[in-house]
């Protein structure tokens, strides 16, 4: 039963919450509202002027290439999510169940290290590895294969996405799997479940929330990434983040770029909320 003080405004709790609320207001809600407002502005002589017109929405929504780019971006981000989730799971499972606590701590530390280096630098280093005269093709040529074109392809884009997201997904999955109640696993095994069946019926459902959060992070990062599709995918064809850059570069159409940004935000919110709802869904 709640007391009167708990029911009313708790000043102490509110004080500690205020920084987060202000941060969200200043750095998320405020810019988001401005971006939405900007979609109705117009550009005259390279200068943005305040207006309330639907021209930018009509223009962008009516362009076939916008929708091509939209579905391409959703497709690539989904593929990246599935790939990262599948690649990360065996590694996370091993770290969570098969190694000592000390080894797990070191592994997580090494997974964090890539974030110390600029993502752009890490992306450019793939040039040396994936180029037709690069490391992989040189090695393949020793056994009579290749050269294969890997840069400026969707494969290149996917390599970039993995560079960005895979370490994070492994970390999130590892933390999630490490918190699975071991007694449930032992019970499953005592009841005769084999290894695969235990993973499918006990471990994955128990770690579902963490696994889905890892996948959602991967989708969000891939969906909004400019670097991988531009530098490793050759901008061929462009994804939505590249379209934002292109739109702002050509004619300084910030309002049209804002339309693309708002569509991206709505997509991400739908994906994130749907995923969270699914994660916490009770059977």
């Amino acid at each position: 039963m709640k007391t009167g003080a708990q029911k009313g405004l708790d000043g102490y709790a509110l004080t500690w919450r205020l920084p987060v609320i202000f941060w969200q207001l200043f750095f998320f809600v405020g810019p988001l509202l401005f971006t939405i407002a900007m979609t109705f502005f117009l550009v005259k002589n390279y200068r943005m002027t305040e207006a309330f017109e639907m021209k930018n929405w009509v223009k962008m929504m009516g362009k076939g290439y916008f929708w091509d780019s939209y579905f391409l971006t959703v497709g690539l981000a989904s593929l990246s999510t599935v790939t990262a989730t599948c690649l990360a799971f065996p590694a996370a499972y091993t770290l969570a169940f098969k190694v000592s606590d000390n080894a797990r701590r070191w592994a997580v530390f090494f997974l964090i290290i890539p974030f110390f280096t600029s993502y752009l630098v890490r992306t450019f280093s793939w040039y040396v590895i994936l180029a037709e005269s690069g490391v992989i093709n040189n090695m393949l040529s020793w056994i009579g294969f290749g050269p294969y074109t890997m840069l400026n392809t969707k494969f290149g884009t996917m390599v970039g996405y993995m560079t960005l997201t895979l370490p994070l997904v492994v970390i999130l999955q590892t933390l999630s799997l490490a918190n699975v109640d071991r007694r449930l696993i032992e019970a499953a095994q005592n009841l005769g479940a084999n290894g695969i069946w235990t993973i499918v019926k006990v471990i994955i459902p128990s770690a579902k929330v963490g696994l889905i959060i890892g996948a959602v992070f991967c989708f969000i990062l891939s969906f909004g990434d400019f670097v991988a599709p531009y530098y490793l995918g050759g901008s061929k064809p462009p994804t939505l983040p590249i379209m934002i850059i292109d739109t702002t570069k050509s004619g300084q159409q910030w309002p049209r770029a804002a339309v693309v940004a708002v569509v991206m935000m709505v997509t991400l919110m739908v994906v994130a909320f749907a995923s969270i709802k699914f994660a916490y869904r009770k059977k």
Partner: peptide, 19 residues
Amino acid sequence: QVGGFFDYGGTFNSLKNGE
């Protein structure tokens, strides 16, 4: 025929490494 669209740095790299 087109293999990519490049900015200043990308143009340098793609010509230099033979892509």
